[in-house]
């Protein structure tokens, strides 16, 4: 068991995992089907009459009409997914469900990163303080107490031995 647990075995496991993950990530699943493309595009757009539901989720007539429009665009096969999204957004401004990465909207992307970095720094600082606090506790007075206790213990042991 000890041999199995050894560091080289762990390195082997890590390499095996990374290799398998790379194989799984890079292997080609092939292009999306037409329906797959329609679903993927309709998941990125909000239905204009449905209080925030996506075209994919909504069963409303407006969503149905836009789904049909997406299907026509996909069947025509001339535009990429992003171009189709742009075409739909032109007709229904503000319907893209993913906030932009520029202007004020970029805040929605930046703030979580700031929060994560802040949290990690905070944790780092707390651990550092705890570490320093431990060192500070071991003052000369503390060492003297330990010394006295050890001395006391030794004296008692010596007496017992006698």
């Amino acid at each position: 068991m000890k041999k199995l647990n050894s560091l080289p075995m762990w390195i082997l496991m890590l390499l095996l995992t990374v290799g398998l993950l790379a194989f799984g990530t890079l292997r080609n699943r092939g292009p999306l089907t037409q329906q797959g493309r329609i679903d993927a595009i309709s998941q990125q757009l909000a239905c204009p009459t449905c209080n925030g539901e996506s075209i994919y989720v909504s069963r409303a007539p407006a969503a149905e009409a836009i789904r049909n429009e997406i299907a026509r665009e996909v069947a025509a096969g001339q535009n990429s997914d992003n171009q189709i999204v742009a075409v739909i957004e032109k007709s229904f401004p503000g319907s893209v469900l993913l906030p932009r990465t520029d202007g004020v909207e970029s805040l929605v992307w930046i703030l979580p990163v700031v929060a994560l970095v802040g949290g990690l720094c905070g944790l780092g600082l707390v651990f550092r303080r705890w570490k320093n606090a431990e060192l500070q506790h071991a003052s000369d007075a503390d060492f003297a107490i330990v010394e006295a206790a050890l001395q006391h213990k030794n004296d008692v042991t010596d007496d017992e031995n006698v």
Partner: peptide, 22 residues
């Protein structure tokens, strides 16, 4: 993500939807 549309509406007086992809 839930309250961000309110922020944009307050700052820029326009409506956006933050949805599932985000």
């Amino acid at each position: 993500g839930t309250v961000f549309p309110l922020v944009i509406e307050a700052l820029q007086n326009r409506q956006i939807v933050v949805g599932e992809p985000f």
